[in-house]
Nucleic acid binder design. Structure first.
Length: 279
DNA sequence: CCTGCTACCTGATGGC
DNA sequence: TGCCATCAGGTAGCAG
C-alpha cells in the first residue's frame, strides 16, 4: 500500500482503533523488519506505553507514544493485519499451512496489530524523538498538507535541475508521491516527465501542483471506499485501476489524444506517459 | 552538497 | 511442466 493516499487511508482507519490503547507486549517474528534496529530496543521503548496519536507524514505511519514514537513504512508490499487476541496471533502467524505472514505484532487489550511484508523491505522502527529518524527528518512538505502551496512548490521546482519524474519521486522535496501518482500527476498536467524541474513556467508549475493535489485526493477517496479491513489478510485497495490514465497502460490509447501510452525508463524505473500530449 | 547506481528481498508472470 | 529472466506501488548507502 505504498503511496500517500493508501497510507492516509490506513491511518484514518487505524486512528479510532488504536488511539488511547496501551501496548501490552511486542512480538518480533522476523527481526529483519526492524533492521538496523534490534528487537530489545523496540520492546523496551514500546511495551506498556499508550498510543496517544496516530499520524502520517509522507508514506510513514506514526504511532506517537507517551514517550517516543514508532514509525511504520510499508515500502512496496507491507501491510497490516488484525488478530482478535494473542492466542489467535500465535495460532495463525507464520504457520506452514494456511498461515498468515507476520513480521512484528503489537498486542493491545482489544486485539493485536500485525505488520507484514513477505519481501522484507518494510520497516518498523522505534525512536525517542522524531528527529532521530533520518528518513522522517529529511522529508519535504507533505503533498496533502496545507503547507503545500503553489508558491512553495514553484520555489522547490526552481531549485532543482533534475527531470520532473525524479523530482517528484524524491521525498526530500515533496513527500508522498511514488511511481504511480508521479506518472498520473504528470499526465494530468500534460507535462513531459523528462523536462527539468526548473524549466517549468509559472503556469506549468501551477498546473502540476493542481494535478498532484487532485490526483491524490481522488485516489484517497478510492482508498476509503471501501475502507481498509485489517481483519482480512487478503484485503487490498480496490478500484484504483479505474482512475489511472497513464500508469501501467503501455500501448493503450491516451484518454486525451488517443496516441499510445509509452513506457520509458528513468533512473531505472518505469515511467508511463503520452509522448504526444505531454510536452 | 548533488546525482546516479546498486543492494536489499520475495513472488508473480511470461517466454521458451 | 519446469526453468529462467524480468518486473514490482521504495529507500538507504555508497562512490564520484
Amino acid at each position: 500500500m505504498p503511496e500517500l493516499p493508501e497510507v492516509e487511508a490506513v491511518v484514518r482507519t487505524l486512528r479510532p482503533i488504536l488511539e488511547g490503547q496501551r501496548i501490552r507486549c511486542v512480538h518480533v517474528f522476523h527481526p529483519i523488519a526492524l533492521k538496523p534496529q534490534r528487537a530489545p530496543c523496540l520492546a523496551e521503548l514500546a511495551t506498556d506505553q499508550c498510543i496517544q496519536r496516530v499520524d502520517r507524514k509522507g508514506k510513514y505511519v506514526l504511532l506517537l507514544l507517551d514517550r517516543g514514537l514508532l514509525t511504520l513504512h510499508f515500502r512496496l508490499d507491507g501491510q497490516l493485519v488484525w488478530f482478535a487476541n494473542g492466542a489467535e496471533l500465535l495460532e495463525r502467524a507464520n504457520v506452514k499451512e494456511n498461515g498468515t505472514h507476520v513480521d512484528v505484532a503489537f498486542e493491545f487489550g482489544k486485539g493485536v496489530l500485525g505488520f507484514a511484508d513477505r519481501r522484507h523491505f518494510g520497516r518498523v522502527h522505534a525512536w525517542d524523538r522524531w528527529e532521530d529518524s533520518s528518513g522522517l527528518a529529511s522529508l519535504g512538505v507533505d503533498a496533502l498538507s496545507k503547507d503545500f502551496t503553489v508558491a512553495r512548490f514553484r520555489d522547490l521546482l526552481a531549485a532543482s535541475v533534475r527531470p520532473l519524474k525524479d523530482f517528484l519521486l524524491d521525498q526530500t522535496w515533496v513527500a508522498g508521491l511514488g511511481n504511480i501518482y508521479s506518472c498520473e500527476a504528470l499526465w494530468h498536467a500534460r507535462l513531459d516527465p523528462r523536462r527539468r524541474a526548473k524549466s517549468l513556467r509559472p503556469e506549468e508549475a501551477r498546473r502540476l501542483h493542481k494535478a498532484i493535489v487532485s490526483v491524490l485526493r481522488r485516489a484517497l477517496e478510492c482508498c476509503l471506499h471501501p475502507a481498509p479491513d485489517f481483519h482480512d489478510s487478503q484485503w487490498w485497495f480496490q478500484g484504483l485501476q479505474k482512475i489511472l490514465r497513464a500508469y501501467d497502460r503501455e500501448g493503450e490509447p491516451c484518454r486525451r489524444c488517443g496516441a499510445a501510452i509509452r513506457r520509458i525508463e528513468q533512473s531505472g524505473r518505469s515511467t508511463y506517459c503520452c509522448r504526444k500530449c505531454q510536452k
